[in-house]
Structures are given as C-alpha cells and as structure tokens.
Design a protein around this nucleic acid. Structure first.
Length: 276
DNA sequence: TTCCATGTTCCGCA
DNA sequence: TTGCGGAACATGGA
C-alpha cells in the first residue's frame, strides 16, 4: 500500500477492505510478531494497549476474514485482532530502514524485520480484540455481509420490504447489510438503474432483483480491480462524481443531491423510480 | 474563512 | 418502541 495512497485516496468500503485483507495475507501471515505498539490508544475500543501486547507479542497470525468493513486477523493465541478503517485508514507494510508512515496508530514488528502499520490520519476508526468474529458482528448489530453467500435474493428482498425510507440509506445501513458506503451505494444504484430516493419498499420484485445482482457485481468487480490495482470499468459512475459530468450510460449530465445527509450522484436519465 | 469529504454514533423528533 | 434525519466527531483540502 506504500506510495499508493497518494495516487488514489479512497475511503474504505467493502472492496477496499477486501484489498486490505489481500494485502494483510500477503505480507503479515505466519510471521512471529516481536513487538506490538499501540501508538494512539484513542482508536482502541474495548482493549487496553497492555492486553493487545500480551495477545500479540510472540504470536503469529494464522488467517484473516472480513465482515462488512471490518477486517479480523486470527492470532495463534486464540482470538482475533479487529480493524476498522473509518474514513482514512489503511495498511502499510514496510521493511526496516524505511521510515514509519505518518499517522501510524498501530505498529507490528515481525521477526523478519518487516513492520505492518495501521495508518489512520483522521482517527475515525477502530482497533479492538474479539474471541469470535461472529459474536462480534452480533454484538455490533452488523447485518449480513453484502458479498456473503449466505445473503440470498430472498433474504435481501425481505430486508428491503419493511423499510420505508429511501433505498440509498437502506443500502448504507450496516445493521441491515454490511459493507456498502456512500460511494458504492451510488454505484450500485446506478448499475441497477434505480433512483436513489425511491422508498425501499416500493421496489418491485424485478427492481430488487436488478439491485441484488448489481450489488454483487459491483462489489466483486471493484474488489478485483482494487486488488489488481487496475482502473474501474468505463461503465462505472464512480469516476464521474462531479455535478454535470457526463453519465457513462447516456452521456447526460450527472446530478448531485443530498440524501439522508450524504451527497449523492446519480443520472436522472438512467435512474428511475419505476422500472423502465 | 467556510464548506466539504468520509463512517459511525448519538440525539431528538414523530 | 421504533424508524428516521441530522449533527457531531477528527482533520485536512479546496
């Protein structure tokens, strides 16, 4: 991730956390942790710096998993390190001799001389510890992960049918579905050709089906392009988040509005409240 | 100087 | 009680 943040400053949503997972796996598994330093206990939630040290030092990470925007790393002491990236968090692995990245909040020093830095400029984020990611998700009231095989079209339909508010904030509500943030909510609704202001329960079966498929497709494609470090597909709205920019679908002007307090970009020509 | 950005949490209203 | 919108939070950039 080093040097990469400057070229693409992106806020962590599910695809970004998927990239962090891939990065964590390729840099930090199976190595003995010599030292764990919480440099800013502001971000520690429910775990003291001393406990974190005790759980990590002398241990190795065995595997990772992701739930929504949370990344969990399993230590061979039993238990999982919990990372949430807030709006400005990322990971940076660097070798000894290189300078510690600015805004490093947690640093792990490995036996091979490498260091994993959890970097977070604005300190909206979280570092914690849990004995079980499933239990953590329940306690935090996280809905099913947006990419999970467990989230069927039927369940998705069920989740939306009882919500009266606009579909966009419903998609972003982590207690309903985990992983979708402001940018990808816009992208998913654009790909599904649905007006973001449409009340969730007004979507008919056909529209919900389109939305479900768009959600899976967008997140999968975005995660892959994030990991492979490629640009997003040309048909994506995301590179056009600017009022009046050209819609990649119809070339009409992209419109900006505010929904539930978040700025929203959409194409009024392509995205309708009722299926076309 | 003021506004905006992002995700989550908290407050207050209906 | 529940669902919801909006402000607040930290911090820097336009």
């Amino acid at each position: 991730m080093a040097g990469e943040t400057s070229e693409r400053e992106k806020m962590p949503e599910l695809p970004d956390v998927e990239r962090f997972k891939d990065y964590f796996d390729s840099t930090s598994l199976k190595k003995r942790i010599e030292k764990a330093s919480a440099l800013d206990d502001f971000l520690l939630k429910g775990v003291s710096p001393a406990t974190l040290k005790k759980r990590l030092e002398g241990r190795r990470f065995e595997k990772t998993r992701r739930w929504g925007k949370y990344l969990f790393a399993r230590a061979d002491s039993g238990g999982w390190l919990v990372l949430h990236f807030g709006m400005t968090g990322s990971l940076d692995y660097y070798s000894s001799g290189q300078e510690q990245p600015r805004f490093t909040r947690l640093r792990l020093d490995f036996e091979d001389g490498g260091h994993l830095a959890y970097v977070n400029q604005r300190r909206l984020g979280r570092v914690g510890w849990t004995h079980d990611p499933e239990a953590f998700a329940r306690r935090e009231r996280l809905g099913p992960d947006a990419m999970s095989g467990n989230l069927s079209l039927e369940e998705f339909k069920e989740l939306l049918s009882v919500r009266g508010r606009a579909i966009k904030p419903v998609l972003m509500d982590q207690s309903i579905i985990s992983g979708i943030g402001n940018l990808y909510a816009d992208e998913i609704l654009f790909q599904a050709r649905i007006d973001p202001r449409t009340p969730a329960r007004e979507l008919d079966d056909e529209a919900v089906g389109r939305l479900y498929r768009a959600m899976r497709k967008v997140l999968a494609v975005a995660a892959r392009t994030e990991i492979e470090h490629r640009p997003l597909p040309r048909a994506f709205l995301m590179p056009h988040r600017k009022e009046g920019d050209k819609c990649p679908g119809c070339a009409g002007p992209v419109q900006r509005t505010k929904i539930a307090g978040r700025s929203t970009y959409f194409c009024p020509g392509c995205q309708r409240r009722k299926a076309a």
